[in-house]
């Protein structure tokens, strides 16, 4: 199968554009979803540990 240059350009300018816009939207929704706030704040604190040993 030969992939023509014009086909690739068309694909990049249509599907490529919407793919990246959709992806950005999904990331922003995930990041700012209200119920995730608590989890992220807790995650930021997890690196401060009282003892330097594993749980398992």
């Amino acid at each position: 199968m030969t992939i023509y240059h014009d086909t690739l350009v068309w694909l990049a300018k249509s599907a490529g554009l919407f793919y990246l816009m959709g992806l950005s939207l999904i990331v922003l929704i995930y990041t700012y979803w209200p119920s995730n706030k608590k989890r992220f704040n807790e995650a930021a604190e997890t690196i401060f540990q009282d003892e330097d040993k594993p749980c398992r």
């Binding site: 992806l23 990331v27 995930y30 990041t31 700012y32 992220f40 704040n41 930021a44 690196i47």
Partner: peptide, 14 residues
């Protein structure tokens, strides 16, 4: 802790 954990996620995907 990191100033904004949310910002770090957005930067990651970006």
């Amino acid at each position: 802790p990191i100033f904004s954990y949310r910002l770090s996620i957005i930067s990651f995907w970006g």
